[in-house]
Design a protein around this nucleic acid. Structure first.
Lengths: 193, 193
DNA sequence: TCCTTCCATTAACAATTGTAAAGAAATGAG
DNA sequence: CTCATTTCTTTACAATTGTTAATGGAAGGA
């Protein structure tokens, strides 16, 4: 149950067996169905999720329709970070896209871990740094690439998601409408022929 | 010379007079002219800058033309963060937009500070967190707002920069061409009448 | 001060995107 | 298995953006 978590943590900071069990005890296993709301916008996010199985989507609610901010797959930590970090009402919502197996840690448990296991500071800092670098990469794609190039890069890096995630959710993640994405798909398919 | 720096640091973590002087001694004052290159893309960024006076721009070089990634004004830390944090070749360039007064700290000096002044960890973590939240805000503007709304928000928050920074540099920061930004300015000006 | 370079706007045209609506196909819940 | 819902694509039209080029004006360096 904790294999994937330990594997990820080990990439950032090595832990002894005893430290590993301390880490494990801070998490609670939770199985949630598809379309399950984990954070609603306006609420304060007080849980951080490690995804053992399934998929989560972080999204904005913009007068009626939903705009994807990020897609989290297996073996990633997911949360409405700004809300979780600063304990402020979230401007985003977090929901499962599939039936999911999650390891859940609460904000109070996090603070306990910081005291008992100082190395945990390094882990969260590195995760935050990675999130920043990641956000910057996505941002650069909006500045440097055309919608067509942005879609092409997405397929390169996350092609499998086209079969797992509804296209209109991917389209809003790429900053375009489903109609426009369908046209781009058509254009690229014809270029290949 | 260090007033603004101390003021910013105090917002994150309180320092004693002795700690302040330790902090000061890690920085070197540097006066650089307009259009001075601080980091060239491909190089590893080994300096972090606090801006006492002037203005810096972080930008991508995309076959010939330059796309603004961020504009740094007075009283901010500036750097090609991903390169500085991970000591990898920078994909961005950093340059002054005006004659600038900078406080410079090198990567080795930073590491010394971490050891002598443990509180420094908190400071850099919070700065990194702020940068992430900031990047996410900009990204959300690309997902949620039209180019026209994006320009309007920029004017609200950074209107003074319209008089300090060439418009084509702002346009690329907003993900549009100077021509399109000029049209948007025209449209918004007519709505006011 | 003069001269060169840079800069902002405008125009015209092509290309792309958004919007609204409709239909076909796939999916999920009971 | 069946039916209602969701999802993807296509079409037609309006609106916006990108591109290229030209102009007048501002700014910077010697």
């Amino acid at each position: 149950m904790f294999d994937a978590l330990h594997y990820l943590v080990a990439q950032f900071v090595p832990l002894s067996d005893r430290e590993k069990s301390v880490l494990e005890s801070a998490f609670v296993f939770k199985q949630v169905p598809r379309k399950f709301p984990l954070v609603k916008h306006g609420q304060i996010a007080n849980e951080l999720y490690f995804i053992n199985k399934g998929m989560l989507r972080l999204f904005y609610e913009n007068d009626g329709d939903e705009i994807t901010a990020y897609l989290f797959r297996e073996n990633l930590f997911a949360s409405s970070y700004d809300s979780f970090l600063r304990q402020t009402p979230s401007i985003q919502s977090l929901e499962t896209l599939e039936d999911s197996d999650l390891l859940v840690i609460t904000q109070p448990k996090m603070n306990e871990l910081y005291e008992v296991l100082p190395k945990f500071n390094i882990l969260t800092r590195k995760i935050a740094e990675q999130r920043f670098i990641n956000a910057q990469q996505i941002l650069s794609s909006f500045l440097l690439d055309s919608p067509e190039e942005r879609y092409a890069k997405f397929v390169e890096q996350n092609g499998d998601l086209l079969l797992r995630v509804p296209h209109h959710i991917i389209a809003s993640y790429l900053g375009m409408t489903p109609v426009s994405m369908s046209r781009i798909r058509n254009r690229l398919a014809q270029q290949k022929r």
